[in-house]
Structure formats: structure tokens, C-alpha cells
Amino acid sequence: MFNVNRVMTRGALAAAVALPVTLCAGFALAQENGQPVPGGLGLPNMVTPVGLGTQQLYNMVLMPIISFIALFVLGLLIYVAYRFNEHANPIPSKLTHNTPLEIIWTLIPVLILLFISVPSLRLLAEQVEVPEASVTIKVTGNQWYWSYKYPEDQGGGFGFDQMLKPESELQPGELRLLTVDNEAVVPINEVIAVHITSNDVIHAFGVPSFGVRMDAIPGRLNQTWFKIDREGVYYGQCYFICGKDHAYMPIVIRAVTREKYNEWLAQAKQKFAGADQRVRVASESR
């Protein structure tokens, strides 16, 4: 017969290792903004209201609740295995019904879910309802790069493609698979609306530090928004499988002050003048 105590010790050991790790996972470690942290355990440092809301919802509400439930179930399993194994309890009871208990374990989960749904739905509305934006950028997914357009009425009127920088061209400090040729620049502390669509298959625009993820679907315009609270370079990737180079179409957003943004706009207008035409020619030759 199998040694029950050995089951117990091993189970407890596994739990002792796994669960503190689970708990830590909720708390973001200090890290450089905007890029994934090596060996990171939790959410990235958030720099937008929606991102901070997500972080709060996960770290303060969801994470503690699910960790508690996991520990509670594990604790019950361990207790039951210890207290009611055939050596400790040779004669089984015939207990098969306990209506109050059944009502309790139906009602308490309902209450927990209601408790979760309040902050969750509040955050959802914040994500979906785009506030009045001072900058609207248009992002189009392509196999396998992103195109950006800055509208004319906000000082733009140009567009450019954002392509992965090949590994052979990386400068020291640039990130493999994340660094691109043309960064998209936006001002900080202003609402940026992002309009997203696609030119071929479905892609998805996502930047973890913003708490933003939105599908790029051909024939359909989607929108999301962010308001970045500090300067920095923020990296994102494509979040929907789009063919062989799905892993090779990163997103880079550089957030700067309004003054620097205006300077960049002026430069970019010259640099990317006629780029719209260039993109078209390039795509026609495909």
C-alpha cells in the first residue's frame, strides 16, 4: 500500500514552492519602463491610466482572490487526505447531503464574482470610451510590419512604415526583435487615440505598458487610446498570428514632451514627405 505520508509531504513541498511564487507574481518589480524585464514575475510598469487600472485590478483584486482560492482548495485537499485517509478513518460516513453547505458554496462564489465585477466593469468602460484626443494616429497592420499615419489637421499629414531592425544592424543597447527603423513618436500627458486596421490578414496592436491590445482587422476600423505619463520608449508586438513573420513585427512608441513632439513633427514631415506614395509603390510591387 502506498505511503500516505509521503504523498502528503511531497504535495506540501510542491505547494510550498509554487504558492509564494504565485503571490509574488502579482507585484511588478522595479524595471526599466517600456520593455520586458528579464525573468520578470509580474505585470510591467504601467504608464497610462488604463494600464495602472489594469495593474490595480490584477494586483489588488484578482491576484489575491485567486491565490486565496487556490490555497484554500489545496488546504482542503491536504486536510482531507490527512484526516480521512483509510488509516485515520477506516469507516466512511454516509454523508451525501448538506443543503446549507451547498447553498453557502453557491452563494459565496456569486458574492466574490460580484465583488470582482464592480472594478472590472469600471475599468472596461474606461478602456472602451475614448476621451477627447489631441492626437489621433492611424495604425495599419501589414504582413509583416506596421504603417503609421499622422493626420493633417493635427500637424501631421505624413505616414511611414515601421519595420524590424535586422539582428545584423543592431547597435549596442538596442533590443533584438523589438528595435525598429522608424519609431512612432507621441506627446506625453495627452490623450492619444489609436485607429487600427489591417491591409491583409488579422494582426493585433498591443503595448503591455499601456494595457492596450486591439485587433487590426481588414475592412474594419477599431480604436483604443492611451495617455502616457512619462517620457520613454515603449515596446509592443503583434498579438495575433498573421503568418510566418508574426514574431518579427514589433511596435515602438516613443513618448516625449509636447515641445519635442512638435520638433519631431516638423522633421518627420520632411523626412516622410511623399512616403505615402512610396508605400503605395512598394505594396503594388508585391
Binding site: A125, E129, T197, G219, R220
Partner: peptide, 16 residues
């Protein structure tokens, strides 16, 4: 209720 926070609506066309 769902439109209370909406200030801007975008109309989009894609020609194929």
C-alpha cells in the same frame, strides 16, 4: 448610458 463618455465618432471606409 454607453454613449455618455463618447466625444468623437469615426466613420471608416475600406475599398476592396
Amino acid at each position: 448610458e454607453g454613449m455618455r463618455g463618447v466625444r468623437e465618432i469615426t466613420l471608416s471606409y475600406s475599398f476592396f
